[in-house]
Computed example of a mutant assay.
Amino acid sequence: MSTSDNRPRKQWYRKKVVWIPLLFVAYVFFVNSSYLAAPPAGSPFLLAHRGMTQTFHMEGLTNETCTAERIYPPEHPYLENTLPSMKAAFAAGADVVEFDVHWTKDGQFAVFHDWTLGCRTNGDGVTRDFTLADLQKLDIGYNYTADGGRTYPFRGKGIGLMPSLTDVLKAFPDESLLIHIKSNDPNEGQALADALQALPKERLEKLTVYGGDEPIAAVKSQIPELRVISMDTMKSCLIPYIAAGWSGYVPDACAHTQLHIPDQIAPWLWGWPNRFMARMEAVNTRAILVAGSGDFSAGFDTPADLDRVPATFTDGIWTNRIDRIGPVFPEKFAGN
C-alpha cells in the first residue's frame, strides 16, 4: 500500500485525537454548568454564630487569643451563648442559631464558648472541672473590654446568664439549632448523644451537631439519623467529590450531613452553585457558606459581604452579625 493510501486514515485518526478531548470537555461542562441548570427554588437561610454576639477584630488572631479582651465598642447589650442573645438572634431574622457546649463535672452540658474560664469570666480553671451549678454562679461578662481594660461594659451583667443545654432546648423547642462540641473527647460525644437520644424524631430533624472527629463519630454511632459534621465527615464527602464530581457522582459520605464551605473555595466545587446544591439536596445534605477561607469562623457580617453570595444560592449563610444582616436580608434575596 502506498503512502498516499494511508493519508485518509491518518487524517481521520488525527481528527479523532482532537475531537475526543473536546467532546469530553463539553460533557464535563454540560454536566456541571450552573448556566445550563434550572435555578433552585427557595431562598437562603441565615445561621447566627453564637446568637447575637459581641464581635472582635481579627488581626493577629490565634487559637490562644482571648477574644473578650478585643471586642469592638458594643452596639447591643447581648453576650454570646446566652438565652437572651439567642432569642434576639431569632427575632432579628436567624433561621438557625449556633452555640457551644462543654461537659461539666456533674455530667451536664454548659453553654459556653471557652475551654477555660479566665478569659471571659471572674472564674479560673478548666470548664469541665466545675459543676453546672458552680459555672452558673459566674459573671460571664466580667472580662469583656473594648478599650484595653480601661472599662468593662458587661461586668456585673452576666451573673447567672450561662445556660445549660437543657435550658436552650426548653427555651427553643421548635427552632433549628447547631450544637458545637468544643472538645475532641469521644466520651463527651457519647454523653451528648445520651442527652439527645430521648428527643422525638421531629425535634432531632431540626438539630445538627458538629465538632471534633471523635465525639462526632460517637454521636453519629448512637443517633445515626442526626445530622452531624466534623473535619472527617467533610473530608470524606468533599475529597472524593472534588476528584470525581465532574461526572455527577456524589459520594455516599455526602448523604445526610452538613457542609461548611468557604466562599473562596466554593467556586472550585463541581457544579457550583446550582448543580452542586441540587446534588446535595438529593442526598438530604445542606451547605453553609462561610466567609473567606474559613479561618476562625469568618462570616458574612456586613451588607456588602452579601454581594459575594451567588444570586441563586438557597442554602445557609453564616453570620456573626445577625443584627446587621438580618434586617437587610429579605430585601437582598427577595427575588430568589
Rank of each mutant, 00 (worst) to 15 (best):
L132S: 05
D301E: 07
R279C: 12
R150V: 15
F154I: 05
G60T: 03
G149H: 02
N6K: 09
R155D: 10
P303F: 15
R275N: 07
P8E: 00
P44R: 14
T319Q: 01
L36Y: 05
N6L: 14
S176P: 10
D295M: 15
D147A: 02
H113N: 01
L117T: 12
D134C: 04
K170R: 14
F24D: 04
F24S: 12
L117S: 08
L192F: 08
V97A: 13
F130D: 07
K15C: 13
P153S: 15
T127I: 12
T127S: 04
F99N: 10
I325Y: 06
N143C: 10
N336Y: 11
R286A: 12
N184T: 12
A291T: 00
T104C: 10
V250D: 07
Y27Q: 08
T67K: 07
L259T: 02
R120G: 04
P39N: 11
S164M: 09
A110E: 09
W19G: 05
Q11S: 05
E205R: 12
A334T: 00
D95T: 08
A146H: 10
R308G: 10
D315M: 13
Q190F: 15
L226R: 00
T131V: 05
T121A: 03
T151I: 06
L23V: 02
F109R: 00
T166G: 10
P77C: 03
G93C: 12
Q11C: 11
R70V: 15
L135F: 06
V290P: 02
V168G: 03
R155N: 03
G141A: 06
T127M: 05
D295T: 15
W270Q: 01
E75N: 02
T166E: 09
E69K: 13
S43Y: 03
I261H: 07
G245L: 03
G107K: 09
G51D: 08
A48W: 03
M86N: 03
R308W: 07
G42H: 08
P21I: 14
K220L: 07
V31S: 07
A41R: 14
Q190S: 15
D134V: 08
